[in-house]
Design a protein around this nucleic acid. Structure first.
Lengths: 255, 255
DNA sequence: ACGCGGTGTATGCGGCGATTACATTCGCGA
DNA sequence: TCGCGAATGTAATCGCCGCATACACCGCGT
């Protein structure tokens, strides 16, 4: 499942995919001369969104490194210079992709957490870690994108509200809160919450990157074992920081 | 400490760095084995090595993404096409850089382990993890290079003996052996050695990548705290998998 | 001594990110 | 309703890149 090493052999010459999708720029009714004419209007209507979607798909298909502004423009059916009306650089485009990926990631985590009672911090912590791992296992390209610190910094430097920074901070804060709660409830062996937070993060991040970076074959872990082992690794960690021997995933964390 | 986002603004126009280093300038004796003449010999003498060194330095200076074959050629004082006599592609060059980095990494680990008795498997395991973390903290670019699964696969696909694969496997085997020894000695809470091995690897790998990827500022960890916290994280992990409460780093691991 | 093969240079191709000049269209105020 | 500036598209261009090809040089084995 490894991707090509360099920016990509490009694609084998495409003739131009016409105009691509169009969101229905509304105003089909002629309030204001709307009409997205049948044959390629000069103005695209929602190019910014379409470019992000194209780049987003390219990330999933061939990995972040292979994404080029020109290819995204090709897929959107516009000239190579057009994207620069909406993104000051390739990295601005990629940062938008990262924001979208982070948004979906956050959504998936929220869904996973909905099933876990709020008063069981370690179970919530575990559910967070599991959702993190599962999403990263299944979206390695997008995981790479949201892990790129340079894109994050680029995005954060723009005053704009892309949500990337906020969505990321929310996840960090959640993990800190639950560990603190667990600690307050006397569920943890150590009192150094910050340390456990960083260690937990490093663990899931490392596991996810090992997958994305293609390290598991070297470690004798077959493709089918990766996800189950992710869960086992997470539970090993929880067993290491939790007081007592009971499994965290069980019903009652206190006895 | 973040690096530029894209392949690099290049360098701001360099006039050409002359010929670079050269081993033995003399050659006065006109016999066969002359290495170099005073003024730029047609044949470089040891271009392959010099190119790897140039790329190696570029990785340290500006990160792996910014390395270009042409820049390496410039630093070596040769034409842009010359490197392709020695490396079939940019990735072949980078794989050579990875092999060199891995070699140094392995050397540093060996040095660190020399001080730890062979009959104390957990202390050796800890020393390995610590050496791993320290090296990665201090050589983030080179750490990225040896972590690039595609370069590893590329190198492994070549029949050639670059040492990358062997050096890597050796480290993996060491960690497995010591955990197995520790397990046999009854030092571990769990019997699943493979799981602990993968978890330990994911932990240090994740921590190291968090550093290389610039994540620590987002987690409220200042530059000065990173290395001490690396050690603390490692010890948290060891405390989690080891039986009893005694610190691993201490003198006697059994009592 | 010679010539073959290894290693360098010169040149060129196509792709890339990015900039600039120009074309088209949207939408807002008079 | 018109008109004009701002927004957003195209075309052409620049310089850098990886890489291929043809040619120049030269060390070494015969």
């Amino acid at each position: 499942m490894t991707r090509p090493l360099r920016p990509a052999p490009r694609s084998p010459r495409k003739p131009r995919p016409a105009v691509a999708a169009h969101k229905a720029p509304a105003k089909a009714a002629g309030t204001r001369s709307g009409k997205a004419a049948a044959s390629k209007p000069y103005h695209h209507g929602d190019l910014r969104r379409v470019l992000v979607e194209a780049a987003f798909d390219l990330v999933a298909e061939r990995g972040p490194e292979t994404v080029s502004v020109r290819e995204a423009a090709r897929r959107a059916g516009v000239s190579p210079g057009a994207p620069f009306r909406h993104f000051e650089s390739r990295d601005a485009l990629m940062a938008a992709v990262a924001a979208e990926a982070q948004r979906r990631f956050r959504q998936e985590i929220a869904t996973a957490l909905a099933a876990v009672p709020a008063d069981q911090p370690l179970r919530r912590f575990r559910a967070l870690g599991l959702a993190y791992l599962r999403w990263a296992m299944r979206n390695p390209g997008h995981f790479e994108v949201i892990s790129d610190g340079r894109l994050f910094d680029f995005d954060a430097a723009q005053g704009e509200a892309s949500g990337l920074k906020a969505d990321n901070a929310e996840i960090i804060d959640m993990s800190a809160q639950w560990l603190a709660d667990a600690s307050a409830k006397g569920l943890l062996r150590s009192a150094d919450v910050k340390l456990m937070q960083i260690a937990g993060r490093a663990l899931v991040y490392g596991y996810a990157r090992m997958k994305a970076d293609g390290h598991f074959p070297r470690w004798g872990v077959g493709e089918a074992e990766i996800e189950p082992m992710a869960e086992a690794v997470l539970d090993l960690f929880l067993a290491g920081i939790a007081k007592g021997d009971g499994p965290i995933k069980g019903r009652a964390p206190r006895a």
